[in-house]
């Protein structure tokens, strides 16, 4: 039992890590990764929604009629998204402003609905929570990694929390400003995907 739970959890961290292996949820990935901090914030918000919606959908999977299941999932997911939105507004307001419209848009993040349909719908509550947590953590890691690359090249700093950077490029380093703009997001993600392919092939 414990072993299979661990398996559900860890598959999200490498074998099925979104958005690299499962090419889903690209919009938030590209939009919010201007810094590590934003990436982690978005990742945690998504993880919260994933875990709770997976849990609830898995508990209700025998009650929900299959014809209206998508509508039910949407209601459940949207409810948790709104809760996250309110909580972030109340406790991490600065982050809330930075992520802006992308918090309510977690509702249409294909990862969340995808996990509901592909996993929580067919499995018990415990594996579903493990699955949600794993995929969510994987997503957070990816966002943080992409955020780190873009922030480092685009701004020359790494900031985890608060204002002071934990790492700065040597003096004389000229930041590639375009990494912080839209094209940098696409190209950064494209190159990271290529790197994953290279490593995965061995």
């Amino acid at each position: 039992m414990a072993q299979s739970l661990a398996k559900e959890f860890t598959k999200g961290l490498w074998a099925e890590i979104p958005p690299f292996r499962l090419v889903l949820g690209l919009c938030p990935t590209l939009a919010v990764t201007k810094s590590v901090e934003n990436g982690i914030g978005m990742g945690i918000a998504t993880t919260f929604v994933l875990v709770f919606s997976n849990l609830l959908i898995s508990l209700l999977r025998n009650i929900i009629p299959s014809k209206v299941r998508i509508a039910c999932y949407i209601v459940i997911v949207a409810t948790f998204v709104t809760i996250v939105e309110l909580l972030m507004q109340a406790y991490t307001y600065e982050l809330f402003l930075k992520l802006g419209i992308f918090i309510p848009l977690i509702v249409v993040n294909c990862i969340v609905l995808g996990r509901a349909e592909a996993f929580a719908n067919k499995n018990g509550p415990l594996p579903s929570v493990a699955d949600g947590l794993g995929i969510g953590m994987g997503f957070t890691l990816s966002l943080a990694a992409l955020g780190a690359v873009r922030e480092l090249l685009g701004n020359g700093t790494l900031t985890i929390w608060g204002g002071t950077p934990i790492f700065e490029m040597a003096e004389g380093f000229l930041p590639f400003r375009f990494m912080l703009e839209a094209p940098g997001a696409f190209i950064g993600l494209g190159l990271m995907l290529c790197l994953m392919n290279l490593i995965g092939k061995k």
């Binding site: 090419v23 839209a182 094209p183 940098g184 997001a185 696409f186 190209i187 993600l189 494209g190 190159l191 995907l193 290529c194 790197l195 392919n197 290279l198 092939k201």
Partner: peptide, 14 residues
């Protein structure tokens, strides 16, 4: 390693 989505993303970037 660049095939499919990867090159797609880079094209989109350009």
């Amino acid at each position: 390693p660049l095939q499919d989505t990867s090159i797609g993303l880079i094209t989109a970037g350009i």
